[in-house]
Simulated scan of single mutants.
Amino acid sequence: MTGTATGRSVPRLVVVHPDATVLARATAARLLTRILDVQSVRSTVHVVLTGGTVGIATLAEVAADPVRDAVDWAGVHVWWGDERFLPDGDPDRNETQARAALLDALPTLPPGNVHVVPALSSEVTTPEDAAARYAATLAEHAPDGADAPVFDVLLLGMGPDAHVASLFPGHEALDVRGVAAVGVHGSPKPPPERVSLTFETICAAAEVWVVAAGAEKADAVSAALGGASTHDAPAGAVRGVARTLWLLDVAAAGGTSSAR
């Protein structure tokens, strides 16, 4: 099912799939198609990955899809919307999970095209250190005058509280402007220390896709699509410059067949 709702910028398109497995498979196919479409007109593509159950399942479906071999991975740059501030290789890091699900299966993806959020180490001791270093890397790949690349597609998971990336309801990080990345303390979901793209950076992406599955997300979907404030339901305020997609399974959609 699909539906459209107008918002402050481009319309949001809501696509509902039968279950989480189909959602992950369809999102993977959509992502591969998007990358190939961009590469039909230019070689470089910037993609922002997300973690979480559905996010990692989507990456595993990309790895399993034979269409992945049609992509020129040498031209794809991989980023993350947020990261848990943990040591390198920690199994809870989004990067660690993404490598196991997909990135390690892409031998033609240059290591230098994988732009990780710096991990906790003796040199990087705070989320602010990591955010500043990540912001510097983003700036290296940004157009003149911008803080970050123009992301061709930015994937976001959504929590049952309607948070996206590591921007939680009511959290001061939601209001940070003028920088590409921010350190997050006091996350209500462990671990408490994280690094996130700022809301401003997320909404500068060409396409933003919010991907959510499960009945525990239904209230958050309803609030976000129903016009709740940014601080009450951050997911509802994210927009892509050219396109905003909500990719849901039936359980997460609840009674939502179209955006409101």
Results as ranks from 00 to 15, higher is better:
213 A>D: 05
230 T>F: 06
31 L>G: 09
39 Q>M: 06
109 L>N: 08
119 A>Q: 07
60 A>M: 05
26 A>S: 15
110 P>F: 11
174 L>M: 06
208 V>D: 03
62 V>A: 07
95 E>R: 12
191 P>T: 14
3 G>C: 10
165 A>T: 10
71 V>M: 06
52 G>M: 06
230 T>K: 07
32 L>A: 11
76 V>L: 00
97 Q>W: 02
224 A>K: 07
150 V>T: 15
179 V>I: 13
233 A>G: 05
29 A>H: 06
24 A>E: 11
201 T>L: 00
60 A>E: 15
53 T>I: 09
60 A>L: 06
237 A>T: 12
4 T>A: 08
134 Y>I: 11
62 V>H: 07
121 S>H: 03
243 R>I: 00
184 V>H: 04
219 D>N: 01
108 T>V: 12
176 V>H: 01
8 R>F: 14
200 E>P: 00
249 D>N: 01
33 T>W: 01
61 E>C: 15
56 I>G: 04
23 L>N: 04
93 R>S: 08
226 G>S: 05
260 R>P: 14
220 A>M: 10
163 H>S: 04
201 T>D: 01
205 A>S: 15
254 G>D: 07
198 T>G: 03
257 S>D: 15
138 L>H: 06
130 A>C: 02
158 M>L: 06
230 T>M: 12
201 T>Y: 00
14 V>E: 12
165 A>E: 09
5 A>W: 07
109 L>D: 07
233 A>V: 10
174 L>T: 02
131 A>G: 06
204 A>L: 08
193 E>T: 11
109 L>C: 11
253 A>N: 02
213 A>V: 11
132 A>P: 00
240 G>C: 02
44 T>G: 03
138 L>W: 03
21 T>K: 10
87 P>H: 04
257 S>E: 15
153 V>I: 15
59 L>N: 07
227 G>W: 03
224 A>G: 12
